[in-house]
Design a binder for these strands. Sequence first.
DNA 1: GTGGAAGTCGTTTTT
DNA 2: CGACTTCCAC
Length: 721
Amino acid sequence: MIDILTSIKSLNESQRRAVTAPLGHTRILAGAGSGKTCVLVHRIAWLIESQGYSPSNILAVTFTNKSAMEMRKKIENILGYHIDDMWVGTFHGLTHRVLRAYWKNSNLQQNFQILDGDDQQRILKRIVRNMEIDVTRWPAKQAQSYINAKKNEGLRVHNIYVDNDLYSQKMLLIYKIYEKECQRAGVIDFGEILLRCHEMWSRYPDILAVYQRRFQQILVDEFQDTNTVQYSWLQLLAGDRGHLFIVGDNDQSIYGWRGARIKNIQDFNQKYKDTTSIKLEQNYRSTGNILAAANAVISNNSKRPSKKLWTTDKDGDLIQLYQAHNERDEAAYIVEKINLWLDEGGKRADNAILYRLNAQARMIEEALLQANIPYYVYGGLCFFERAEIKDVLSYLRLISNRNDDAAFERIVNKPTRGIGASALSQLRQYAHEQKLTLWQSAVKIINSNSISTKNKNAISSFLILIDSLEPKNDKTPLNELTDLVIDKSNLRVYFSKDKTERGQGRTKNINQLIESTSRFNRQKGNEHMSLLNDFLSYASLETGEKLTDRSKDCVQLMTLHSAKGLEFPEVFMIGMEEGILPRNKFKNDTTSLSEERRLCYVGITRAKKILHLIYTETRYLYKKKITPVLSRFIKEIPTERLRKVCARKNIADNGNTPIVKSFTTLNETNLKSGQQVHHPKFGSGIIVDTEDSKKSFRVKVNFKNAGNKWLVLDYAKLKII
DNA sequence: GTGGAAGTCGTTTTT
DNA sequence: CGACTTCCAC
């Protein structure tokens, strides 16, 4: 018998109140490092052990597969036994499972497959081309984010009203066509999974009731990241009787750009009047100085439930602020500090380097490589996202469902088999006119006289190839099928011809894919579908392990976004500059600026012991040289918590690095109207107007002695006074 | 129709 | 800088 109550006694008072909150709706506002996961896990254990709930009556929802797995492990750890019949998963994983069980009611075909962002874009590109509108003016990418945004808000084409706005008219039309084609092809995109499930439940209350009866306790992690559909889905599931236990931190909401609504967590207790709301403010992660900095920064955001982290820990080291000469120096400084850390016996994995933009990582990587310090970059391509893997998967998808246009398009001429651009565009044209899928069109077109014999033969042999690959029964092992596909499609020969390192890596990867198919175990709830289909949906939802070995002791490189939920003894936040954090275009928009500030807050609170903030005097960003100024967020940190690190000497620079700061040069990131500036020839003046054309950025300056002048910013060398 | 070479373009964050 | 397109010679 596990004594869960003893375990609960070791928690602090707020945590204990949270874990044992009365059965009903509960909102936990959990600050960074306040033991949020611990509370969630204990609550579940408490429900089972102390309140008599069966694990099967509990649903735990997360955002990533990784955190779902970790949570399950922790719960099992505490309980001391396996909880196979408890659903722990991501929104996407869970709703997908529902759709598989009720595919018919969801208006899907049984072998439906999931479209990733890449496939989605491919389809949209084709649609835009078919519409015969200017592709450069209506890029597929834009349509993609439009459609995804609408789906995240739960909006279908018929829910959107447009007036005379050309842009939304076009977007809506694309949305409409896209939906039709997906339906025809039997594929659904990420956003669609949730939306479909939501709609199906709304349409069939009896099916919804099945789930409502089962899931009496619904626990949601990172609730601040939920979007409209997700929240609405939870509400539907909870109904009148289910209990929502939501955990999150409004100050760590950094995914507004992909539909997350911070209001969901902030207004939760207004939506559910009987909510028990508890704040977790004691921090177990960081030193006093780090917390003070974090609190100072975040307190500048308005409209947030007040929350202040505190610790019984000492103040610790001061936060170190370093102004590097340039990004090279920035990297060199980090290497120096990490070496120091290692010399004192620390681990490489204790160090994390956090940045706003992926592009910033390059220089750091170079420096670490040179210094022979192993590192790991988060957010690279996952295994199943690799081009060569997706090629093989596309064959498998086409075998499973001939109408999968995205798959068809990807591999119809890969490796090249004489079905070139012209044949393809004929095929697309035909499909478009006849409202058929590409495969259906191909079948029809080879029996007609509308194309050349050469094309006819090429297409025909492709169709025969795919047909011949389809296993006679479900008994064929997946790895044999995959091997056969790679062989017969000629992909193996095609990749092996490439003698470069990249090509060899590809061969290695496709072999690894065969390997992973042989190890594949059926997913729960998918028993009724073919093994192949089961594997394919696994591949698209479960991104799989990153290829680089993370188990080694490596310095950790990642964006601020992907750092959420992690912690490190020593943290370097680089590029603490206006224009980077906050990002340039967010400067004048309060909502986005708040999100940028939260991003900064997330970064600071990752640090346990030592925090370095670094900005540069000059830097190249997108091949443009800029002279940034310190981020406003860093200026918000009380100076007594900071120590300015002096510029180091002997830096491999051109030797002309001024230690004494001169006037900052005016650039796009630091200019504002009314700014006093100085020009070498015209003397001093005031900016009265600006103009941003594609080619150059111009400012109009009213000079005391020379009158009004329009100047190109890049050449004028204006200094801020 | 194919493959290489040259040229253009656009750069946030991702389940 | 790299991914993507376009152009050109086979």
